[in-house]
């Protein structure tokens, strides 16, 4: 009974929180717009959305990992490795169909994710440590397979570079893929049994096990999915920037985790909504796009970003506390 009450409260809370975040984004946008009128121009908004697409794809995967009380620090390295292998393949076989290149990236990512999933579920290593170890290993492998060279724009086929610049139904392919994944995730976590099981496992692992959820299967699933998305993101990244480097995406995992946290995903498991994560990614996108626009000193950008993230996190928590207190009051009445 109390569990049900909790879930109802959480639903309300989730909605409220997203409005808070949305309000924050709108406020920030207005401030930036006042300082530089170019911000809300169609051209700049297109740039903003395109640049946020890869981040939001990764953030959605990370959301599931965080919901199961896990974390994946290896995604930056997975992204680099799969992007590099895809690029090396394209360099060797210029006639390769771009879809096949994407597939190669996804397969590499899935393998990386599955290794992590195995370590977490079967061997039982803490996700933060397992993924830290794999982060080193995958990054080392990226340098190794590439022979410490880069794959440059002229070595990639035009069809491969067109993945990121072409459009489907009038929408840029990157954004299109992000939208498809968003719709899929929205359906997956809300309407499927497995999706609900992920939340159940995250909010209370012990009782989830007792109620017959195969926790190993779920852990495998979320990490493999994360790996697959990182692989996809790796190919998109390489195609977007038309260059594959060994140090691609180094430290990007923290940006992705920050997007999730801003979006209201709790590291303690069980909480997190697809729309929230999307908003979190958009907030970071607005910061990345907007701060250079308003002529703020480059040396202040990092400090401002840190302060805004901290304020957003505290804001979320205070809102949550207030809402909970109000709910409690209501229950007494």
């Amino acid at each position: 009974m109390s569990e049900m009450m909790k879930s109802i409260n959480l639903a309300k809370l989730g909605k409220f929180r997203e409005f808070g975040l949305l309000g924050f984004i709108v406020l920030l946008s207005i401030v930036i717009q006042l300082l530089n009128p170019a911000f809300l121009s169609p051209g700049n908004l297109t740039d903003l959305i395109k640049n946020t697409a890869i981040l939001s794809i990764l953030a959605l995967g990370m959301m599931l990992v965080l919901i199961t009380r896990g974390i994946d620090l290896s995604i930056g390295a997975t992204l680099a490795l799969s992007g590099m292998i895809a690029a090396l393949t394209v360099r060797a076989y210029p006639d390769l169909h771009p879809l096949l290149a994407i597939l190669i990236g996804i397969v590499v990512g899935v393998v990386c994710g599955a290794v992590l999933g195995l370590l977490v579920s079967k061997v039982g290593i803490l996700p933060i440590i397992a993924s830290l170890g794999l982060m080193n290993a995958f990054r080392g492998m990226t340098y190794w397979v590439s022979g410490r060279e880069w794959v440059s724009a002229y070595q990639m086929s035009d069809s491969f570079k067109h993945i990121a610049t072409s459009s489907i139904l009038g929408i840029n392919t990157l954004v299109f893929i992000a939208i498809i994944i968003f719709i899929f995730f929205n359906y997956f976590v809300n309407n499927t049994v497995t999706g609900r099981q992920i939340y159940a496992l995250g909010s209370n692992p012990d009782s989830a096990k007792i109620s017959g959820i195969n926790s190993d299967r779920i852990y495998m699933l979320v990490y493999t999915l994360m790996g697959g998305l990182s692989g996809l993101a790796g190919v998109l990244w390489v195609s977007k920037f038309a260059s594959a480097q060994g140090n691609t995406g180094s430290g990007y995992e923290l940006t992705v985790i920050a997007a999730c946290i801003l979006g209201g995903v709790s590291i303690n498991g069980g909480v997190g909504k697809v729309t929230g994560v999307l908003l979190g990614a958009v907030l970071l996108g607005v910061l990345d796009n907007g701060l250079p626009l308003i002529n703020v000193s480059p040396f202040w950008q990092m400090g401002i970003e840190g302060a805004i993230i901290l304020i957003a996190v505290l804001f979320n928590t205070i809102v949550k506390k207030t809402v909970e207190r109000n709910n409690l009051l209501r229950r007494v009445i």
């Binding site: 170019a38 051209g43 700049n44 640049n51 920037f241 796009n289 250079p292 626009l293 480059p298």
Partner: peptide, 25 residues
């Protein structure tokens, strides 16, 4: 008009370039 820093990162260099193009048509 401006000295921007892309930190030798692809994504940051791209968004800095885009910002330059937006700010200075």
């Amino acid at each position: 008009v401006e000295v921007a820093y892309g930190d030798d990162l692809r994504d940051k260099s791209v968004s800095e370039t885009e910002a330059l193009l937006q700010s200075y048509p």
